[in-house]
Amino acid sequence: MSAGSRIWERLRKDRTGLTGLAIVGIFLALAIGVWLGFFGQGWSAADGGRWEPMSPEFWFGTNLLGQDIFQRSIFSVRTAFEIGLIVAVVSTSLGALLGALAGWYSHTWVDGTILWVKGVLDSIPFYLFVAAVAYALQGKPWAMHVAMIATFWTTTSRLVRGEVMKIKSREFILSARAIGLPDFVILLRHVLPNTLHILLVQASIAFVAAIKTEVILSFLGLGVQDGVSWGLMLAESTQEVLAGHFNNFLAASVMLFMLLMGFNMLADALQDAFDPRRSAE
């Protein structure tokens, strides 16, 4: 049995993990639907009255402006996936690359520099750093993404560095070097693929962290600038809940909770599946 199918076998037995996978799948389908223009397109029209209750026309009612809360919360799925995917993919790739470099050239100046940058970034409190980067880049469409990617890569790079240092001394690498393959070919073809299990888990953790951070940043006015997101909906709702209107709050927080829950369950199951010691008994 190959490693991949062994992992799939383990995952399939994990009921929690499968539930998580199903939830994430449903949300992904929603996001793709919004992308293709099937639903959520009326998120910005203000056709309704102020704070209308749930009705066949407005499933989750309307907000202060008379916008359809259901459409807004659905459109936000796309926003969440956009942010989550971009940040997860870029930060994990960056972490993999830098981690591999540091591990391959360990105890040289390359390793030293990367460790130094990582040490510096890790010494600054996370939310402070992210908010400061988003503030410094305000007005630029990618401010929030850059802010998150700049911090999220460090954990991945630490794990990958350790793994690469282990792999480096294995036989198949030594023989690849012996036949004179260039370093980067060995790194890309033979080393990095062996860290895939770390990357998958880290990407799913980064995805969750990105969505949670987006919510906080948008709430502070430093996140999503054009469009709608759960963070913006929650920011709106802080004023509405005091006047007794909970639809915006409930829609955004329930959707957010479900997606994060699904991802956390999946990430947990992935970790168990990849690491046989964790589920030894």
């Binding site: 910005s44 029209a45 203000a46 202060l64 402006l65 916008q67 006015g221 430093l222 600038q225 913006l232 920011a235 709106e236 802080t238 004023q239």
Partner: peptide, 16 residues
């Protein structure tokens, strides 16, 4: 507009 809830909602209303 400064990025606060009310100002953003005013912008969205303007757009509508």
């Amino acid at each position: 507009f400064p990025s606060h809830v009310t100002e953003r909602q005013m912008f969205e209303q303007f757009r509508s």
